[in-house]
């Protein structure tokens, strides 16, 4: 098999939190055109070293039996598209699924991998007028819009993610983002200030799950598919009540079919649908 020197920034051999309900092997590729102040992986913004792809695939082979797929993260994994396509090919050959996390700065590169990717997780970081200044890239908004367009027209599964911070996102911002990407599922993630690149952000208090829940309520008005993701309870699908919370707290719920009145449901509410 072909070897390649790759911009590997690190990997997590097994994860449940990077791809909903899937077990994934997460590969971080270094290098990124953006400079988001809350970036958690700021050590990967520059490509510092290249490593042999062989090393990575050996690890992947050991994990294979336990995982569903591979998530490419970064950095911006689509920046070096030749490396990414090479890696995706290796992953597919092993019968594993592929997800790519992207900031949408390389629409043309996205096009090249559309066919081979099972899920795109694309960041929409803020409302349009704040975009370029937040990520410190003059043409960011324009390219992000083009990427959204490409994804919109494709068949591939897409999930849009917004990582939320107290000092960066107002309730209104979230509502407008939801409207902007109303045709995509939207995940509102609780940002972790303590790991942020920017020292000022590091000092601030994270938004609580309750606050994010409120944002989701507002977002839901424009987007029927809202999830939230917090440290407290992980990923939850937003409905007017939180099914996950009820499940986690073991709260009693009545079951519509009446068959199992009072069972607390699994958070996806499967109990009567069997």
């Amino acid at each position: 098999m072909r070897h390649l020197k790759i911009n590997l920034g690190g990997f997590v051999p097994i994860s449940t939190v990077d791809w909903s309900h899937q077990l994934s092997f997460v590969i971080f590729l270094s290098g990124c055109p953006f400079r988001c102040p809350y970036c958690q992986n700021y050590e990967l913004l520059e490509v510092k070293e290249l490593r042999d792809s062989e090393e990575l695939f050996r690890e992947l082979d050991e994990a294979k039996m336990f995982i569903d797929g591979v998530v490419f993260s970064g950095g911006e994994p689509t920046e070096r598209i030749d490396i990414l396509t090479f890696l995706i090919e290796g992953v597919k050959k092993r019968g594993l699924k592929v997800a790519v996390q992207t900031n949408g700065y390389y629409p043309d590169n996205l096009k090249r991998i559309l066919e081979d990717v099972d899920l795109f997780m694309m960041d929409v970081k803020t409302v349009p007028e704040k975009y370029d200044s937040l990520v410190k890239r003059p043409d960011a908004l324009e390219r992000v819009e083009r990427s959204l367009e490409i994804l919109r027209e494709s068949e591939v599964d897409v999930e849009i993610r917004t990582t939320l911070f107290r000092s960066l996102h107002t309730l209104e911002d979230v509502e407008r983002i939801a409207l902007w990407v109303s045709d995509f599922p939207l995940v509102l993630q609780q940002g972790r200030p303590e790991n942020a690149w920017d020292e000022e952000i590091r000092k601030e208090r994270p938004l609580t799950r309750d606050e994010i829940f409120e944002m989701a309520r507002v977002a839901k008005k424009h987007n029927k598919n809202i999830k939230i993701r917090t440290a407290e309870l992980g990923e939850e699908e937003y409905e007017d009540h939180s099914i996950r919370r009820e499940a986690v707290l073991g709260e009693e719920r009545s079951c519509k079919s009446g068959k199992r009145d009072g069972y607390s449901r699994s958070y996806h509410g499967r109990c009567c649908e069997r």
């Binding site: 449940t16 939190v17 909903s20 309900h21 440290a231 407290e232 992980g234 958070y267």
Partner: peptide, 8 residues
């Protein structure tokens, strides 16, 4: 620290 996805 993270809250693992129960299904996964």
């Amino acid at each position: 620290e993270s809250y693992p996805d129960p299904e996964a």
